[in-house]
Design a binder for these strands. Sequence first.
DNA 1: TTCGTATAATACGAGAACCGTAACATCTAT
DNA 2: ATAGATGTTACGGTTCTCGTATTATACGAA
Lengths: 169, 169
Amino acid sequence: MTSTTTGEDADARRRRRRSGAAIKESMRELSVQLSLLNHQISASFDLRDTDFDCLDVIKRHGPLSPSALARRTGLHAATLTGILDRLERGEWIARERDPADRRAVIVRARRERNPELFRKFAGMNHAMDGLLDDYTPDELDLLADFLRRTADAGRDATDALVEGGRTAG
Amino acid sequence: MTSTTTGEDADARRRRRRSGAAIKESMRELSVQLSLLNHQISASFDLRDTDFDCLDVIKRHGPLSPSALARRTGLHAATLTGILDRLERGEWIARERDPADRRAVIVRARRERNPELFRKFAGMNHAMDGLLDDYTPDELDLLADFLRRTADAGRDATDALVEGGRTAG
DNA sequence: TTCGTATAATACGAGAACCGTAACATCTAT
DNA sequence: ATAGATGTTACGGTTCTCGTATTATACGAA
C-alpha cells in the first residue's frame, strides 16, 4: 500500500503490469458470476435482475425518492415505477408519502424478508468464509479497502457514462 | 495467506470477523455497481444486461454450443436464442455449424468490436490503474488470487442454486 | 394572490423480451 | 430399423421497458 511505480526496475514493472491485467480479468469474471448468481436469486423471488440492485441501493442510501433512485442507478424514471411495484408487491419495500413535498414519495426498505434472502446467499457466504480463513487480519483489511475503493470507482464510471449518454447521446 | 483462525486471541478473532463482514458488504456493493455499469454499456450497444455476460462466457470458454452456454449460465435454452440473435446481429459472435453433429451449432466470439467495447470500459480501467498503483507487486498477486477464487465461489454458488431449483422446483 | 413554469410520480401504449411448449432435424442404443 | 434422447429454433402468452402524456404539487415573479 505504500509503493509507487517510480523507482521500480523493469522486472518489477513487468510483474506489476501482468498482475494488474490478471486483476482486471478476474474482476470481469467475478462480475459475470455475481450477475448470474443474482439472476438466479431474483428469479426465485419473481423479480427482475435489477430489482435487487435497486433494493440494495435503497438499503444502503435510503430512504429516498424514486427520482433520486433513478438518478443514482441511471435507470429511466418510468422503469422505476415497475421495479418499485414488484418490490412493494413482494413486501421488500414500502412507499410512503413525503409530508414536506406532497408530490414526492419516500421509498423505505423493509427488513422482514432479509433472513429469507440471506438463506439464498448462504452458499456464497459459506464459500467466502472458508476462503477468508486463509488470510491474516492485515490481509483482510487490505482486501476490504481494495473492494470498497473499487466499488467507488465503479460508481464513478457509471455516473460518467450516464452523464455522457444524457448530454451527448 | 498462511494463518488460520486457530491460535488467535479474542481480539484477533473479533477483528477478523469485522473485516470479513466488511469484505462481504463491499463485495455486494461492488456487484451492484458493476451491474449498473454493465447495464449502461449494454444499453449503449442495444443489448440486454445478460448479453455481455454471455459474450464473456463465450470468450472465456468458447467456442461452444447454445445448450452448453445455457447450462453454464443457468438461462433457459429458448432465451439463449434471443440473446445469440442480438449478439449475432451486432457482430459480436458468429454461429457456425458443427460438422460432427449436424443438429448442433457452434458459437464463436468475434474480436472486431473489442476496441469499441474497451473504450466504454476506459473510465473504469483508468480508475483501476490509478488504484492499483498504490499496491506492491506482492499485494497485487494477493488481490488477483483472491478475486479469482471468489469468482470460482460465485460460479459454484450459482450452479448449486440452478441445480437445486431444477430438482426441487 | 395569481399565474407560469419546473418537478414528482405514475398511466398509457408500442415494441420487445422471456420462457414454456412444440416442431423439426439428427443422433444413439438396442 | 426403430424408439427415444438431444440440439436448436419457432410460436405465443404474459410481462417488461421506456418515451410521452397526465395529474398533482411546489415555487418564483408580477
